[in-house]
Design a protein around this nucleic acid. Structure first.
Lengths: 112, 112
DNA sequence: TTCTATACCTCCAAATCTTAGGTATTATTT
DNA sequence: AAATAATACCTAAGATTTGGAGGTATAGAA
């Protein structure tokens, strides 16, 4: 498996917000697995990055949590607050815009 | 002007390598202006990030420099070494791959 | 003469990430 | 039965990267 996480740098919080925006709720481990799956096992969110990021989003009031015991293990579900939904939309838009710019730099002949 | 630099995080060195791969040589200030121009003034490489990044690339042996006086001002031109060309190709490929994965996350219905 | 643009640089602080650990349960393999 | 893998949470230390603020200096325009 490729350890190619470079592009995730700085965009982890937005990725989390995007995943949460598409679902009612998700728990941390689920997020790591989802990113692995979407990227064909080529990208991986490390737990040392994920959990602090989730806690920061919670501190910012963008997500709320509810803990449940499922099959004997504790799961902490995260979901977007009202403010989180607004902020998610805004950050996603910004990231897409930045992505387009980056593509322009990398592939000047093919983009936009 | 939009201060939207977020996506540059972690990819600045690769962006520099890409710009240098397309040209014989560039100097620092020119790089900042080129990125501004490509991104319609929406993105900006700060000098506090650029110069340390250039110096690191030089220390890694990926670029060499030659200083010239042009119109009374010193310019330090950077160009890729042989190793730099190989490394540039490799890092650019990686970044494009990461970009595609990120697009998959952001726009699951439209990408690849 | 003062400001803007050009052109280089460094230092400090903040943010982010990786690595490496830790705890605990369940399921699978040996 | 014991060990390993998978699930599920977490933190701490250190490295890296970046932004912001500052510095120096020249040329040209206002």
């Amino acid at each position: 498996m490729n350890q190619n996480n470079s592009i995730l740098k700085g965009s982890l919080a937005t990725i989390i917000l995007k995943l949460l925006a598409e679902r009612e709720r998700m728990y941390g481990y689920e997020i790591t697995q989802k990113v692995k799956q979407i990227t064909n096992e080529e990208m991986q969110i490390t737990e040392g990055a994920l959990y602090p990021a989730l806690h920061k989003l919670e501190a910012e009031g963008l997500v709320t949590t509810e803990t449940e015991i499922v099959e004997g293990r504790a799961r902490k579900y995260y979901s977007l607050t009202k403010e989180g939904k607004t902020e998610a939309a805004s950050r996603i838009e910004e990231l897409i815009s930045s992505l387009k710019h980056l593509q322009n730099i990398l592939n000047p002949q093919f983009s936009i």
